[in-house]
Simulated scan of single mutants.
Amino acid sequence: MITKRKALHTMEPLDQTDRKILALLQTDGRLSGAEVGRRVGLSQPAASARILRLERQGIITGYRATVDPAAVGLNIHAVVRLRTTHAHLGAALQLAARTDEVTSTRRVTGEDCLILDVHCGDAGRLEQVVDSLARFGPVSTALVLRDYPDKPLMQYRPTGA
């Protein structure tokens, strides 16, 4: 099991092969080392060694299954923005962490402090979640009409790379 941690500041730089491996695994984390190697032009042992190095460096932080929320009865997806004070931030983060319907939490700059993805089975439960967050400050809610696939992170090159 890979534990989530920050990438080491002294890590080896990523080359094009590492970037290709990362893009492949972000698209399909179940690819075998042999298949990854075939797609990037490496032997299975060489590809597996690179994957292990990327895991050890904290670049690959884990593998997971992606679940369709609607297929499990969570038909409402909302983005909730919370504006709070520094004094209430910790309590708001704790509430978000223990609320099952909150599937992601981002602390952001600007007028809002937190942006949360919320998946609920019905509007009544969304109302309860929003009301529980509103005790920490003004809340703004937007219903998501459609989700589009995420792009693999490693198809982009950071400036200077």
Rank of each mutant, 00 (worst) to 15 (best):
K6Q: 08
L8M: 08
H9W: 04
T10K: 15
T10L: 11
M11V: 09
M11E: 11
L14V: 01
D15W: 01
D15I: 09
Q16K: 13
T17E: 15
R19F: 05
K20N: 10
K20G: 08
K20Y: 11
K20P: 05
L22T: 05
L24M: 15
L25D: 06
L25M: 08
Q26F: 00
T27N: 14
G29Q: 04
G29N: 04
G29S: 07
R30Q: 08
L31W: 01
S32K: 12
G33R: 02
G33V: 08
A34V: 13
E35W: 06
E35M: 12
V36Q: 01
V36D: 00
R39T: 03
V40K: 12
G41F: 00
L42Q: 12
S43H: 00
Q44C: 09
Q44V: 07
P45M: 05
A46F: 02
A47C: 05
S48N: 05
S48R: 13
S48Y: 03
A49T: 03
A49D: 06
A49E: 13
R50W: 07
R50G: 01
R53K: 11
L54M: 10
E55T: 04
E55L: 08
Q57G: 06
Q57H: 10
G58V: 06
G58Q: 07
G58W: 09
T61I: 14
G62C: 13
G62W: 14
Y63P: 01
Y63A: 02
Y63M: 03
R64G: 01
V67F: 02
D68Y: 01
D68C: 00
A70Y: 10
A70Q: 14
A71Y: 07
V72D: 00
V72E: 00
G73K: 05
G73R: 08
L74I: 07
L74T: 02
I76Y: 00
H77C: 09
V79W: 07
V80K: 14
R81W: 09
R81S: 06
L82Y: 05
R83P: 04
T84P: 06
T84S: 11
T85C: 07
A87I: 12
A87F: 14
G90D: 14
G90L: 10
A91W: 02
A92T: 04
A92N: 08
A92S: 07
L93E: 15
L93D: 12
Q94N: 12
Q94R: 11
L95E: 00
A96T: 07
A97D: 14
A97T: 09
R98P: 04
T99L: 09
T99C: 06
D100V: 14
E101T: 08
V102T: 10
T103K: 00
R107G: 11
R107A: 14
V108T: 10
T109R: 03
T109E: 07
G110I: 01
G110D: 08
D112C: 07
C113Q: 13
L114F: 12
L114P: 09
L114I: 05
I115E: 15
L116N: 09
D117M: 12
V118Y: 15
V118R: 15
D122P: 00
A123D: 13
R125M: 04
R125P: 02
L126F: 04
L126G: 04
V129A: 11
V129E: 00
V130A: 15
V130M: 14
S132A: 15
S132T: 10
A134D: 08
R135N: 04
R135G: 04
G137N: 00
S140L: 06
T141M: 11
A142T: 10
A142Q: 15
A142E: 14
D147A: 09
D150P: 01
D150V: 04
D150C: 07
